[in-house]
Amino acid sequence: MADLFKWDQDLLSGEAYDELLTRLEAGGAGSPAGRFYHVCYGRPDHLKIVDVWDSPRHFQEFAEELMPVLVDLGGKPMEADVCPVYDISRPPWKGTATPGCLLARFEPPGMNGSQYEEIMKRLAEAGYGEPPERLYHVCYREERGLRMISVWQNGQAYRACFEQVVRICLDLRIPGVPLAEPAVQDVHHLIDGSPLVPSSRS
């Protein structure tokens, strides 16, 4: 089991965020226990964050280290939206994002588990099951259905995969999904330093 924590508010500027990472690393909190992924994305003056943690307890332990530094840099402690993770997949990659990486946030109306499973199955059959250009993919559950966030090395690879998703959805007659264009933004920083999270599909 895992939980996705997302902050859609303006947390810090790019310069302050970079200083935050430096201070956390210096204090021994740069790679906290229980955090599977960390993605910072958006405009330099409006950065957003998505984390995946193995438990709220580990996040709270990290928050005790994070919040004093965040406040000192002019940030405001804000509550995250917390959602259960449904599925995670990624290639065998570790490191930080290179310039030009993109985050795609896909929020199709009313997608359910069986639809998601069929889409992923057909993507694999078409050769898009684990594209090497996709650094990170997480599917999580909100009240309105399943949502997806993925990080890509470049826009060309992302568009090719998404066009395949649209074709699959049209073939399966999944209403609404082909009309839901993902929101795409630049990645500022990506940290992936943990093993694969066991799927919590249900």
Rank of each mutant, 00 (worst) to 15 (best):
residue 47 L to Y: 03
residue 20 L to M: 11
residue 21 L to K: 03
residue 153 Q to A: 14
residue 29 A to G: 02
residue 41 Y to C: 09
residue 166 V to Y: 04
residue 11 L to H: 04
residue 40 C to R: 13
residue 107 E to N: 07
residue 42 G to P: 03
residue 70 L to K: 05
residue 106 F to V: 04
residue 134 R to T: 05
residue 198 P to L: 12
residue 90 R to F: 07
residue 125 E to V: 14
residue 54 D to P: 04
residue 46 H to P: 00
residue 10 D to F: 02
residue 196 L to V: 12
residue 147 R to G: 00
residue 127 G to H: 09
residue 49 I to P: 00
residue 89 S to D: 11
residue 111 M to D: 03
residue 119 I to D: 08
residue 116 Y to M: 13
residue 92 P to Q: 15
residue 136 Y to G: 06
residue 72 D to M: 08
residue 48 K to E: 08
residue 24 L to I: 00
residue 11 L to F: 04
residue 22 T to C: 03
residue 33 A to M: 12
residue 82 V to M: 06
residue 81 D to K: 13
residue 191 I to A: 10
residue 190 L to P: 04
residue 61 E to H: 05
residue 16 A to C: 08
residue 185 Q to Y: 00
residue 68 P to H: 05
residue 77 P to D: 09
residue 8 D to S: 10
residue 112 N to W: 00
residue 120 M to L: 14
residue 153 Q to L: 14
residue 119 I to Y: 05
residue 182 P to D: 10
residue 132 P to W: 04
residue 44 P to D: 05
residue 23 R to H: 01
residue 110 G to I: 07
residue 120 M to D: 15
residue 14 G to R: 12
residue 99 P to Q: 09
residue 158 Y to A: 14
residue 180 A to E: 11
residue 125 E to N: 10
residue 53 W to C: 04
residue 113 G to P: 01
residue 129 G to K: 09
residue 95 G to D: 05
residue 163 E to T: 14
residue 96 T to Q: 06
residue 175 P to Q: 11
residue 92 P to I: 13
residue 33 A to C: 09
residue 47 L to S: 10
residue 87 D to E: 12
residue 78 M to G: 09
residue 147 R to Y: 00
residue 75 G to F: 04
residue 148 M to F: 09
residue 118 E to D: 13
residue 62 F to N: 06
residue 93 W to M: 15
residue 131 P to F: 06
residue 135 L to H: 05
residue 88 I to S: 14
residue 150 S to Y: 01
residue 3 D to C: 10
residue 68 P to M: 07
residue 145 G to A: 07
residue 57 R to V: 11
residue 114 S to L: 11
residue 40 C to Q: 09
residue 24 L to K: 01
residue 52 V to C: 01
residue 44 P to E: 06
residue 75 G to R: 06
residue 82 V to D: 05
residue 145 G to F: 01
residue 142 E to F: 00
residue 77 P to V: 11
